[in-house]
Design a protein around this nucleic acid. Structure first.
Length: 205
DNA sequence: CGCCTTTGACCGGCGC
DNA sequence: GCGCCGGTCAAAGGCG
């Protein structure tokens, strides 16, 4: 997972075929000031997942054993990959492919309230990162959306959140906070190979 | 009292 | 085949 090509400028990836060509739907629209709007796209992750993109699962070829402790930023970007996550059942059962998308915010807290209810089901230390990664699942019945939250060891102020799957139900709360999150949200745009920040860049801290 | 976090074990994939 | 590594399970405890 360290391989997400959403790194800021750390790793200039050639990324001619970067799968992450998504633009935050909310910000590309007018304002997301009205919460009702966000709740409207029930298919999306509360306005987030909507029309976003498919992430890729890519293995990093080399790197292998711990390449270094703080190597969080030094992981390879690999390049292209498939655009789906395979959640394989056993033996030739159907493979679910689900959209996945990651973004990073600068925040003091790991838990970003995006309007959904999440239950934590695991926490694991990952390589190249001093901070553990947390695994959450949407508690709504029948909704198997997952997300993982990880803090960069290099930059303690940056939290990477990865969503996986699509919500099958409307959002539960009005997400006022989320507007604030979008403000700080940094998304890697493969097109220009630059990370862009939405809204005002005044971030606390 | 119900829901959620915590935490170690377990499991499967992959590289060596 | 073995061990590493990331992801998930499930029991037990915590908190509102």
């Amino acid at each position: 997972m360290e391989n997400y090509p959403i790194f800021f400028g750390t790793q200039p990836s050639s990324s001619t075929s970067n799968p992450y060509h998504f633009v935050a739907g909310a910000s590309s629209h007018d304002h997301l000031h009205h919460h009702g709007q966000a709740a409207g796209n029930n298919t999306g992750g509360g306005g987030l997942n909507q029309g976003l993109f498919l992430g890729s699962k890519q293995e990093e070829p080399s790197e292998s054993k711990d390449g270094g402790d703080d190597g969080a930023g030094s992981s390879s970007q690999g390049g292209g990959g498939e655009a789906d996550v395979v959640v394989g059942k056993k033996k030739g059962e159907k493979r679910e492919r689900r959209p996945r998308f990651a973004f990073q915010t600068r925040s003091q807290v790991d838990i970003l309230d995006d309007g959904y209810r999440w239950r934590k089901y695991g926490q694991k230390a990952v390589k190249n990162n001093n901070f553990p990664r947390s695994y959450y699942r949407c508690t709504h019945q029948g909704c198997n959306v997952k997300k993982q939250v990880q803090r960069l060891s290099r930059d303690e102020g940056v939290v990477v959140t990865t969503y996986e799957g699509t919500h099958t139900h409307p959002i539960e709360k009005s997400n006022d906070n989320f507007e604030h999150i979008l403000t700080q949200m940094q998304v890697y745009s493969g097109i220009n190979n630059v990370s862009q920040t939405f809204g005002n860049q005044h971030m606390f801290q």
